[in-house]
C-alpha cells in the first residue's frame, strides 16, 4: 500500500519523485499559511513539470495558473519563491480568488 498520508490522500511528493525518475523537471508549490476562507489547508501541495503536467492543488483552482507560472520560473532559476495571495476585494477578480481568502504559497524546485 502506498500513496496515503495522514493529512491528505494525494501523494504529491510521491508523484513528484516518479516524475523526476522519468527525467522531468519538477517544482512543488506548498500552501504554508492561510487566512479566511481558503479552500485548501496549510501543507497542500501542487506539483508542476516543465512539460506542463500538474498534480494536486493549492486552492480550489483559483490560483493554480498563477502558481504554475511562478513554478516555471523557479524551475529555470532554481530560486525558491514565497508568494502572497493576499487579495483585496477590488483585485479579487483579477487573480481569480473570488472566495476572499488569503494564502501564502512556497514554490521550490525539486532535485
Amino acid at each position: 500500500m502506498s500513496g496515503t498520508t495522514g493529512t491528505d490522500s494525494e501523494d504529491i511528493l510521491g508523484t513528484a519523485a516518479a516524475w523526476l525518475a522519468e527525467g522531468e523537471t519538477v517544482a512543488i508549490a506548498t500552501v504554508v499559511e492561510t487566512w479566511g476562507s481558503s479552500p485548501r489547508p496549510a501543507g497542500s501541495r501542487l506539483a508542476v513539470t516543465k512539460s506542463g503536467r500538474l498534480a494536486g492543488s493549492v486552492s480550489g483552482g483559483c490560483i493554480e495558473g498563477a502558481v504554475a507560472e511562478v513554478a516555471r520560473k523557479t524551475m529555470e532559476t532554481g530560486a525558491p519563491q514565497l508568494l502572497d495571495f493576499g487579495i483585496s476585494d477590488e483585485r479579487a477578480w483579477e487573480v481569480g480568488l473570488a472566495c476572499g481568502g488569503k494564502l501564502k504559497v512556497f514554490v521550490e524546485k525539486m532535485g
Binding site: M1, T4, T5, G6, T7, T30, V32, E33, P41, A42, G43, K104, F106
Partner: peptide, 23 residues
C-alpha cells in the same frame, strides 16, 4: 496535532510540513 503550519522561532519563519504515517 497532525497539522502542517508556519511558525516563527527566534525571529525566523519556518514551515512545518507534517508527514505522519497513514491513519
Amino acid at each position: 496535532d497532525d497539522a502542517s503550519r508556519s511558525v516563527t522561532v527566534d525571529g525566523t519563519a519556518w514551515f512545518i510540513a507534517v508527514e505522519n504515517p497513514p491513519l
